[in-house]
């Protein structure tokens, strides 16, 4: 019990970020999903059997809980990313403006991706999971996850190249 609590506490922030991603940025849904996950882990209805890393197991439970909550509420899982609450950028100077513009361009690129592609990017890029672990979390085969990952990167690259400057500056190392 204490060991479980310690593990959960160490992953709490990441778990909440993943919950937030799964609930399309709706904070209340993310909190409810995370709460339901902790309850399931405490009462043993979700039990870690060591078949994967604890983090990927936890993320899979969170994803399932939020999906089942969304089904109950009959709400579509993902809304447009424009609807998502994002931190305000206090633009100060050209660097800040450039950063804000860059973020908007990346957001636009992400909007073009499918939900699964966004999931795999979130898991691999932000949560540092391997593609195999991401596949476990998403409940898909490894090959499928690889395809989503590859297409997500291609899609993101393509959309960023449309924007021009950001991608060029990255590839030229400036």
């Amino acid at each position: 019990m204490n060991e479980l609590a310690t593990r959960l506490e160490s992953l709490h922030e990441a778990a909440f970020q993943w919950a937030l991603h799964c609930s399309a940025g709706v904070r209340q849904d993310a909190e409810d999903g995370l709460q339901a996950t902790y309850e399931a882990l405490l009462d043993g209805s979700a039990c870690f059997k060591g078949q994967s890393s604890f983090k990927s197991f936890l993320f899979a439970v969170i994803r399932n809980k939020i999906r089942s909550q969304a089904r109950k509420k009959k709400v579509r899982r993902l809304v447009g990313l424009d609807d998502v609450r994002t931190p305000k950028v206090e633009a100060q100077g050209s660097k800040a403006l450039e950063d804000a513009e860059r973020r908007r361009a990346i957001r636009r690129a992400l909007e073009e991706l499918s939900p699964k592609q966004r999931d795999v990017l979130e898991l691999v890029f932000y949560h540092d999971l391997t593609i195999e672990e991401a596949a476990q979390v998403m409940g898909v085969r490894l090959g499928t996850a690889r395809t989503h990952y590859k297409r997500a990167k291609e899609g993101m690259r393509r959309e960023l190249m449309k924007g021009g400057l950001q991608w060029k500056s990255a590839t030229t190392g400036t």
Partner: peptide, 23 residues
């Protein structure tokens, strides 16, 4: 690898909901 690193950095900077903190 460099492309991947750039995409990763870009994603992490611009990912939605990044300002939210856990309860």
């Amino acid at each position: 690898e460099r492309d991947d690193r750039y995409l990763r950095e870009s994603y992490n900077q611009a990912r939605p909901h990044s300002g939210e903190r856990a309860p």
